[in-house]
Computed example of a mutant assay.
Amino acid sequence: MAKRDVIGRYSGSVLGLAWSFFNPLLMLAVYTFVFSVVFKARWGEGVSDSRTQFAMLLFTGMIVHGLFAECLNRAPTLILSNANYVKKVIFPLEILPWISFGSALFHAAISLLVLLLVQLTINQQLPWTAVLFPLVLVPLMLATMGLSWFVASLGVYIRDVGQVTAVFTMILLFMSGIFYPISALPEAYQSWMRLNPLTYIIEEGRNTLLLGKVPDFQTLGLFTAVALLVAWIGFFSFQRSRKGFADVV
């Protein structure tokens, strides 16, 4: 079903799945031009001031945020857009967020491939820590699924949820350290910014994919435990509220 979701998104288009490759490149080019050319932003923190390096640091944040945002923005209409499955008692409705996540993960993997190819072309090598990047994504996956289950069930009864998630993910785009390092902020704000789980995932993603640094496994374990709790709460709320889906849709 996830495969069908990916293919169906580009059905009828001339380039087909090639759009999944060109879309992130286009957005990367636009954001890089605006922030590094127009605003002349520089990363600092001992990182090269080249526009290419800035683009790769920015792109890593976009990959993580895009994976989370796509799942959360689709969650409010997951049940409503699959109303025919609600009537079928044997269909496990709880897998619908997994289908959405699988589709988003495919597009994230394409973007990640682009990032690694660019880095390999420029630096002639990849840091070995890149193999640890999937571990960094584990708490993101768990938290995303928990929020998707909760929002999907809530969206059945409150149709305004979709508008809220769209605004929320847009705020996170600028409040997760995607376009700037957290160290560039005044110290009074840094601790608040680090309360955002996406900030940690994005920073550790850059460390493993670009900077060759091993993630902080103690903090990673703590985030994973919290994400497990979020996933359990989201799944529990979904299972409790699913009994009324058929009466609403």
Rank of each mutant, 00 (worst) to 15 (best):
L126K: 12
P215F: 12
L140Q: 03
V38R: 04
K243Q: 08
L137K: 07
L57R: 06
A83G: 10
F91T: 06
L120G: 15
W128N: 15
T129H: 08
T219R: 12
L72F: 06
G177L: 09
G12I: 05
G8W: 07
L26T: 14
V118S: 08
A104P: 03
V47M: 03
V6C: 02
L229N: 01
S237K: 13
M62H: 08
A69R: 02
T121A: 15
I182S: 05
P139Q: 04
L173F: 12
G44N: 15
G16H: 10
L195E: 10
F217P: 06
L222H: 04
F168E: 00
A130Y: 12
V64M: 03
L211K: 03
M62S: 09
A75H: 15
L154C: 04
L137W: 15
A188N: 11
T52K: 00
L132G: 08
L147G: 07
S100F: 04
E70W: 06
Q119H: 15
G212Y: 14
L72E: 03
A143M: 06
A152T: 03
V156Y: 08
N84S: 09
G205D: 06
M170E: 09
T169E: 07
Q124E: 10
I95K: 00
M141D: 08
I90P: 06
A18L: 09
V131P: 08
F22Y: 12
R194V: 03
F68V: 10
A188E: 13
M1C: 11
D160A: 07
V86D: 02
I63P: 14
A143Q: 03
F91H: 03
G8D: 11
T208C: 02
